[in-house]
Every structure is written in C-alpha cells, then in structure tokens.
Write a protein that binds this DNA or RNA. Structure first.
Lengths: 260, 260
DNA sequence: TCGCGTCATTGACAATTCACAACGATCGCG
DNA sequence: CGCGATCGTTGTGAATTGTCAATGACGCGA
C-alpha cells in the first residue's frame, strides 16, 4: 500500500477518525459512522510527503481532515503537472476502479483518514447513503475540475490569478483558511508559486507579476507571499471573467447542507 | 440560435433503447437491462439543439448512443466556455444531485437515451451493478476533465492542438469516428474551430495556424477542415507535452526536425 | 442558379508572455 | 550568529499570441 515518507504516521495511526465532524459525513446515520470509524485509519502527513504514487496499487479510499493535498502527474522529464487539489472534506479514491492515474502529495501538513478500499466498497453495497456520498463527492470533484478548466482557459495571467483567488474564496469558504478582517477577507495560499504556475498553465514569474498587478490596482493586498487580503472581491470576479453563480448548489454538499 | 428544436424527437421517442449494445451497459445482467429499457426514452437531436439548459431543472439521466454533445457555461458577457464533450457511451446526469451547472447541446446530430432521474435512482438502490456503472462513469469523466486540464495548461497552441488530436485518438478509439487508412488514422473533428478554441483557451486563428503548422511539418494531413489524417502519432504525442518535456518540444519544433 | 451567411484561413501589428538571469528575502541548521 | 538553500521578485530581449481586418470556400435557401 502507500509506502512513503516512512514515519510521518506517528502513533495515532490506528486511532479512529472523528468522521462525524467532517461536513460530508454529518448526514450519515450513526450506525454507519460507527462502522466507518471501525475500519478507518488516521494518518498525518508532512508537507511534501507522498501519499499515493502514480501507478502503484493503492487500495484505499480516504477523506481529507485537515490541510491541502495536490494531485499531479509526473512527466517523463520529471516535471509535474498538477491536476487538482484536495482540501478538508474532500473524498478521494478510485472506488470500484483500478489504480490512481496520478500521484497525491501533501501540499501542506495534512491529516487524513483512510479506509481499506475493499471494506469501504462492501459498506457501500449495504448503505445507499454512503454510495450517495461518494457520488456527490465525485460530482463535486468534477465541478471543481471544470471550474479550473475555465480558469486555465483564460488568456491573461491576471485573469487566471484573479480567478484563482475567487475560486479559493468561493470553494473553501467554509474552511478556517480565511478570516474576516477590517479591510477585507484574509486568504492563505496553500501552495507555492511554482505549483500554482503549473496549475494555471503559466510560469512563476508571470504569477508573481500578476499578484503584484492586482496589488498595485488596490484589489488585493499582499501581506506575505502566502497570505493575501482580498480588498475588492467584485473586481477580482470581474477580472476573472468567470462570473458564474450557478455553482452554489453543490457547495451545499460540501458545507454539510444542514442549514436551511 | 439553438432554439431547442422542439420536436426533433420524432415518433421513436418511446421506443426502448438498444442499451445492451453500448459498451458500458454490456456488463449488466439481463434483468436490469430490461428494467432500464422499460423506463428509457430514445431521443434524436439535431446539431445545435439544446438538450439541457443551464439552471433549468432537468430530472434526467442519460446515455449518448451516437454523436457528440458539448457541455458549456455561458458567461456574463455572452461568451461560451466549453467544459467538456460527451461521446457515445458516456453517461451524464446529476444523480442524487440538483440541476446541471452547465448546458448540454448537440455538437453533431445525436441519438441519446434518457431515463427519468427518480426511477433511475430507484433502480440504483436495488442494483449495485448500476451504482458501480455510474461511479465508474463519473471517474471516467473526471479523468477526462483532468486530461483536458493538462492540455489547456500547455503554453503553445501547437501543443494544445497536438494534445487534442492525441486525446481524440486515445479516448475515442473504440468509436467508429476513426478509420484506418494507408497513410495513417483518419479522425473526424466533431466541433468547429471556434468551439475548439474556446475549449483550448485560445482563438480560432491560432488553432488554424497550429493545425497548418502540424500539416506543414508532415505530422498530420488536413483532408478537410473537419477531417484529419494522423500521419505521425508519436510526433503529436511528443509535441503535446503530456509525455515529454516541453523544453525539448520547443527545441524540436524550432529546429524543424521530423520524427527521430 | 444566384445570393447570402457562416466559417476557415491568412496577413499585419500591438500586446503579452516566455526565457534567462540576477538579486533579495526568508528560513532552517550548524 | 552566520551560512546556505530555497523561493519570490524584478529586469531585459525574443518569441508567441491576441486582435483586427480582409479574403476565400462552402452550404443553404430563395
């Protein structure tokens, strides 16, 4: 299974996961939660640790509890192509399918919860609720990937970067990664410039220039290279050219859909 | 334009679909196939007809029997952003979820098979095989979307276009859209230049130039604007940047070399 | 058959990004 | 406390694309 950076696992490896705390799982009946907890293994990952290597068999299904993971393909020359990010609440795993067509690495320190694939699938067959959860999770991932596609399809780097900030703001709104501030919303960037550049289909230099262009226009404020203050969200949304408001539906899933 | 060509449906609307002929459904037990057929409605779509309007409630699950459909979002400025294509064998539908966050239109004349969502979901709860089918279908869509992401993330238009051809060749290999020819493989392009440009994050002019650049290098042959002959598949794969270094490709192109 | 509109193609120029390089800031470690 | 490595930032010329405009090919309907 996921052999990797040795012992970032720690001794909490076998402790059951507080699944009930994660938004997507909240809707599940208590009995199912118990069964899930019973087969769950907790795991901590240090930044840059590899969870799943492309091609290698990885018979696990998992859920991100904390942190950010990146999914990427490694091309023959060693260059990485990032194909997606996983954040808290996201479920990953090739249920009923073969191996992952990409690697999964920790972009930040992470806490994740793993289930043996076979046992997870067995549970799915008996619990339609779990099956529903998986399907909704996949639809969510799909929407996310397509939203990214829209971002990357933009021509100017400023549009991509602005769209990226909008994306962060909208999609991870329920996470503790943002804080309200007198001047706007504070956003922490989970990945470094080079990764972001790869993801957006550009170069680190262009990303840097774009951030500073937005800064100079007064739309954002660069607190540190990894922390931004969103001053004028509307402006970013306008620049990104993505002004679509129909995606709010799925976020109900991610946010636990309890309220309202 | 796309005025939902009302009743292109014809009188074959209620005829059962030959589901058993579609690859994804072949594995299902006969009894389930019968039940699916019982609730299925066949439908024909003319090119540019709208199947599903964004935002509108569409309580259907469907399968493409023939032709190509495009999924797209319409941005505030009226521009379309294409987020995916559906080809024969693809299953679409927001199972257990709300409305579509995009529109679906026929890129070519199409034959599709529709199921009422509620009844389809009911079948899923009793037939794990169907559930499995849906999940695998979603995983497939996800892979497809991520592959697109890799394409669009490329910088040069030649890389995007080359990657697109590779994508067509690999992903729809089982379709009758390609034919073997003495000189290579014949591929039919299901969408026009402008759509492709939107999809690849560039302009029609650039797409055109890229196609002709590949033509001039001898890697493809443009039979008609919608029909290409793949002469040197390896070269395309190399140029696409999905399997080799983009730097090498740049140099290879710059020096004007052919296949090794 | 002719006329019309759509679409692909091509050309020329401006705008933007890439690529290469150097510099500076930050952080961990001895 | 200084050293080195990593990363972010900035500057410059070269390459590529976006943009605007015009032309030509094709299909459709009158």
């Amino acid at each position: 299974m996921t052999a990797k950076s040795g012992s970032s696992t720690g001794r909490s490896a076998n402790a059951p996961c507080p699944l009930a705390e994660m938004p997507p799982f909240r809707v599940l009946p208590a009995e199912l939660l118990d069964k899930l907890s019973a087969i769950s293994r907790r795991r901590n990952l240090e930044r840059n640790a590899t969870l799943i290597d492309i091609g290698k068999s990885a018979n696990v299904v998992g859920c991100v509890m904390k942190g950010v993971l990146r999914m990427s393909k490694t091309l023959v020359d060693g260059q990485q192509q990032i194909v997606g990010l996983l954040v808290a609440g996201d479920i990953f795993g090739r249920v009923f399918d073969g191996d992952f067509p990409f690697s999964i690495e920790a972009a930040t320190d992470c806490e994740i919860c793993l289930f043996p694939k076979a046992e997870f699938e067995a549970l799915m067959e008996h619990w339609p609720e779990l099956e529903k959860l998986v399907i909704l999770g996949l639809l969510n991932e799909l929407d996310s990937a397509r939203e990214w596609l829209g971002l990357v399809a933009n021509h100017r780097t400023v549009e991509k970067v602005a769209g990226f900030l909008v994306f962060l703001h909208r999609r991870w709104a329920f996470l503790a990664e943002e804080e309200e501030q007198p001047g706007g919303t504070l956003i922490d960037l989970p990945i470094k410039r080079q990764d972001l550049a790869l993801f957006l289909g550009t170069r680190p230099e262009a990303v840097s220039r774009a951030f500073h262009a937005l800064h100079d226009k007064g739309h954002i404020r660069i607190v540190t290279p990894y922390r931004f203050l969103i001053v004028d969200f509307e402006a970013l949304d306008r620049i990104s050219g993505q002004s679509v408001s129909q995606l709010d539906v799925h976020r109900a899933l991610a946010s636990g859909e309890g309220p309202r």
